[in-house]
Amino acid sequence: MDYALVQRPKVDGLRTAGTFKFGIEEEYFLVDAETKSVVRNMSQPFFEAAKAATDGRISPEFLQPQIEVISSPHDNVADARAELRALRRTISTVAAEHGLAILAAGTHPTAAWRSAQQTNKERYDSVMHDLQMIGQRDLLCGLHVHVELPDPDQRIDVMYRMLPYLPLFLALSTSSPFWQSRRTGLKGYRLAAYDELPRTGVPDLFRTQEEFDAYVTALVRAGVIADSSYIWWAIRPSLLNPTLELRAPDSCTLVEDAIAIAALYRTVARHLYVNPWRNADLDAVARAIIVENKWQAQRYGVHATFAAEEGAMTVAEMVERVICDTAADAAALGCTAEINRCRAIVGSGTSADAQLAVFEAHIQSGSPGTALRAVTEWIAAATLQ
């Protein structure tokens, strides 16, 4: 992200609402254009050409079959959509010139993690040394959304109060029903694999910046991590930018789904910032319920039923409640239509539902390999819709 780190005035009393600029990072699989199988090694000629074509808004990832795109900061959702679509199409065009293609999904249906090679970079060398085989298994792609708060010092407070929404963002994004050429039985397998890593999952109940800083300081002093960028929770304060970064979602196959989730997260961030009473009393019971709901989202996607102290709630019901609660915030940010799309995601299903439907349609008359090939072809086509 290209946010400038600047001093912002603090306002006594009511919190003022700013523009809540946001940016999107998407991870894609790099595949052979013909077979749609992941490449073993990153093509440097491709990467250099794609970097030039996108003005540097592409980055290598931990493993070589993956790339990441990084949007500009935006305060207009239409501009973010246009840029994200342009980035996908530009990279796809360059990839085609090198016999490659991109797939946007949380997992690649047939990729074998044992064949993936680590990207040559000092930071990644250190991470792989620490994680060992767990790092080799990190052949996963996510959607990360950064939102800048008017007062960055409030990021830990907003993160704490954002925790109940994490399962919803995940459910809406699920795009990883396959792993190692097998149906996993989950709509979102990605986090099942990713949560093998340390310092992942739902954050603990940090209430203040001081508490978070004390945690990071203890780990740094012990030599466990170099800095807070090695904390990979489902949501975290960015080290480099004055943003709160959502990391729970799978990489969305459809651009419109990615934009809807980004808009919803941005809207909820604004709502929590200007309403500091919302979710201000989370405790150990609440966090335990959030962890359970995260599992329900992984297992069932938008068909999940979430637990709450007052009873059960479907994903559809939670979407309606959140849209109702944050209507004024969505209107202020100009993204009412985008968060309303979350209703359509619930109604028609996520990428995971579509992938499974394609698989079932082809397994009836073909082999599992043929059906999986059809799934990868669908992902490749839908990535550019």
Rank of each mutant, 00 (worst) to 15 (best):
A222L: 10
R199E: 11
P203A: 02
D195L: 06
Y165K: 08
Y165D: 08
A218I: 00
L219V: 04
R236H: 11
L170E: 09
L166D: 01
T184E: 02
L197P: 01
D213N: 14
L166M: 06
L168Q: 00
L240W: 14
W232F: 00
E196Q: 15
P242V: 05
E210S: 15
S238W: 05
F169L: 03
T243P: 03
A171R: 06
Y230H: 15
I235K: 01
A193T: 13
G188L: 03
A234G: 08
A214V: 02
P167N: 04
E245Y: 03
A192D: 12
V220A: 04
G223N: 07
R199N: 13
T208G: 09
L240Y: 13
P198Y: 04
L205N: 06
P177N: 07
K187Y: 09
A222Q: 14
D227M: 11
S175D: 08
P177K: 04
R199K: 10
S176G: 02
V216Q: 07
P242W: 08
T200P: 02
S181K: 11
R221C: 13
F169P: 08
W232Q: 04
A192M: 15
I231L: 15
L170G: 05
I231G: 03
L172E: 00
L239R: 15
V216L: 02
L172Q: 06
S228H: 13
L219P: 09
E211I: 05
E196W: 14
A226R: 15
R190L: 09
D227H: 13
L197K: 14
P237E: 02
T243I: 05
R182T: 10
E196G: 12
V220R: 12
D204Q: 08
W179G: 02
L219Y: 09
K187D: 07
R190S: 08
D227C: 01
F206V: 03
E245A: 09
L246Q: 07
F178Q: 04
